[in-house]
């Protein structure tokens, strides 16, 4: 009921979110204390901490989209990506650090979807921070039990003759789905192809956009 006058609704009709006036948690206090101590002792500077936060925030799904578009366009790169995604993406400047990357390819017969049932492992170097739903108990528990129902809720209806492969990131690997290339994109540049690659298509909860 937008525009109703009510104490708990903003003028937009949405409820106000309560202010975060709760005291800091034990771990929040710990983080501030350790950070301030390290700055005081000259181990890091405040600017370095800020720069690292900026670097983490700068990672986003356009990085993964460039990898996918290149794999669609260059058969040799596609083969290298599927054989050793860690090094294939590192050579493009997307270093995954101490983790390793596995790329799994969607085809006419196979659809892949990524989940981390134990926590929230996610290919952050290629996709940035995970969406909130990726970390929910519901997504984590249902995707391994009823992936087709979960995918249908994301708008992806898998035919019976397509095998669904769920990948649970349980340890040191991170996963990215190489979505199927949309039809009608022959001769497109990699820049144009990358525009069709959504975040969800690289998690497996979506498909690449149709041109």
């Amino acid at each position: 009921m937008p525009h109703d006058h009510h104490d708990h609704l903003s003028p937009s009709g949405h409820p106000y979110r309560s202010d975060n006036d709760a005291p800091l948690s034990y771990w929040q206090v710990m983080e501030i204390a350790v950070r301030e101590l390290m700055i005081e002792k000259g181990e890091v500077t405040a600017a370095e901490v800020a720069a690292q936060i900026d670097a983490m925030d700068a990672r986003n799904p356009s990085h993964g989209a460039r990898v996918v578009a290149r794999a669609w366009d260059e058969p040799e790169f596609r083969a290298a990506l599927l054989a050793d995604a860690t090094n294939a993406t590192r050579e493009m400047g997307f270093d995954i650090g101490p983790m390793n990357l596995v790329a799994v390819e969607n085809t006419q017969d196979v659809h892949n979807v990524i989940v981390c049932t134990l926590c929230s492992c996610y290919p952050r170097n290629l996709l940035g921070l995970p969406p909130d739903w990726y970390k929910t108990r519901e997504y984590r528990s249902r995707t391994v039990k009823e992936p087709r129902k979960v995918l249908a809720e994301f708008g992806v209806e898998l035919p019976d003759n397509v095998t669904c492969r769920v990948h649970d990131s349980t340890a040191d690997m991170r996963y990215i789905v190489l979505p199927a290339r949309p039809k009608g994109t022959d001769g497109w540049t990699q820049e144009a192809l990358a525009e069709l690659v959504t975040r969800d298509s690289m998690i497996g909860t979506g498909l690449a956009k149709q041109p």
Partner: peptide
């Protein structure tokens, strides 16, 4: 869907 698969490390 019995033939679907799950991979884990």
């Amino acid at each position: 869907h019995p033939e679907d698969t799950l991979d884990a490390e």
